[in-house]
Computed example of a mutant assay.
Amino acid sequence: MSLITLTTDFGTKDHFVGAVKGAIYSELSEAKIVDITHEIAPFNITETAYILKNSYKSFPKGTIHIVGVDSELSADNKHIALELDGHYFVCPDNGLISMIASEIKPTKIVEINIHDRIESSFPVLDVFVQVACFIARGGNLTVIGKEIKAFKKLIEIQPKVNQAQNQIIGGVVYIDNYGNVITNISKKMFNDIGKGRAFKATARRYSFSKIFTKYNEVADNSTHENHQYDGHKLAIFNAAGFLEIAIYRSNLDTVGGASSLLGLGYRDAISIDFYNETTPDFTPIS
């Protein structure tokens, strides 16, 4: 059985998702299709990269991931298929693969060249489905395209390090269903640069000198009821290992989320400044 995932910005109101699934089953009736999400913000490559990075590893090796975000073919937006970490990705070469490939290099990348046989304004349906099903049947990537060595890199996905000033400058790459604000600063980078020193993380006019490992650590369970801490802001390394600014027990219908309450949005800057451990007013990293 072939496992194929779909990640798109199509939404679910229109016919697009159903048409893509129908085309897959027409090509490969035994396929198993899993929807990762169809609610990517339109054309948001950074959001796509974050979701892919944190979902693909949960699938078994050999899974084929079709990614339909900003997928219209152009001279500057080629279509590629690649093997990476035992998985296959069929997607536009618009930088969305950057976040995954920053840590694990692709085994093989090809530029898809079947477009001369297919005229399409809906490449996910007409091209990506054919490529994915070809791979699922055991086809070699080099049959569908010319092997290339490089892919487009999205610079904004990677945070910057200012060694001289002991500073990491990152940005907001995703806002989740709870309104939590996720940055591109990883726990690994934080530890590598910080080396256990005191720090201050700054997001707009808000600052944090402690980063939690669980949301409920913000509540002092020994003396208070947890609900007394509802609405408190906190910084945490989330399950994906990225710095997140959150509101404890956030509810977008009542309390609100970090994005709305703190005025933080996509691409907003987040900085971390590190200090000597003896600097007062800062809590050393545990």
Rank of each mutant, 00 (worst) to 15 (best):
I175P: 12
I175K: 10
D176E: 10
N177G: 02
N177T: 11
Y178V: 03
Y178E: 09
G179P: 12
N180M: 07
N180Y: 08
N180H: 10
N180D: 14
V181G: 07
T183V: 13
T183E: 09
T183S: 15
N184S: 06
N184F: 10
I185Y: 12
K187A: 15
K187G: 06
K188W: 00
K188T: 14
M189N: 06
M189H: 06
M189A: 09
N191C: 05
D192K: 15
I193T: 15
I193L: 15
G194F: 06
G194A: 13
K195I: 05
K195C: 13
K195V: 09
G196M: 13
G196D: 00
G196P: 07
G196W: 02
R197E: 03
A198H: 06
K200I: 15
A201E: 08
A201P: 09
T202Y: 04
R204V: 04
R204G: 05
Y206R: 11
S207R: 01
S207N: 13
F208W: 06
F208L: 09
F208D: 03
S209K: 10
S209P: 00
S209I: 15
I211E: 05
I211M: 08
T213V: 08
T213E: 14
T213K: 15
K214Y: 15
Y215G: 07
Y215W: 04
Y215I: 01
N216F: 10
N216Y: 10
N216T: 02
N216Q: 11
E217T: 02
V218C: 08
V218S: 10
A219Q: 11
D220E: 15
D220V: 13
N221D: 09
N221L: 13
N221P: 01
N221I: 07
S222M: 01
S222K: 14
T223Q: 11
T223E: 07
T223G: 00
H224F: 15
H224N: 07
N226R: 10
N226A: 09
H227R: 06
Q228A: 03
Q228K: 14
Q228H: 10
Q228L: 13
Q228T: 04
Q228G: 03
Q228D: 06
Y229Q: 09
Y229N: 06
Y229E: 03
Y229S: 13
Y229I: 04
Y229K: 07
D230W: 04
G231F: 10
H232P: 00
L234N: 00
I236F: 01
F237A: 03
F237C: 04
N238H: 09
A239C: 04
A239G: 11
A240L: 00
A240R: 01
G241Q: 08
F242E: 02
F242A: 03
F242D: 01
F242Q: 06
F242I: 00
L243T: 02
E244D: 00
I245H: 02
I247V: 14
Y248E: 03
Y248I: 00
R249N: 13
N251M: 02
N251D: 13
L252F: 00
L252M: 10
L252W: 00
D253S: 12
D253M: 14
D253W: 06
T254D: 08
T254Y: 12
V255Y: 01
V255S: 07
G257C: 11
A258R: 06
A258T: 09
S259L: 03
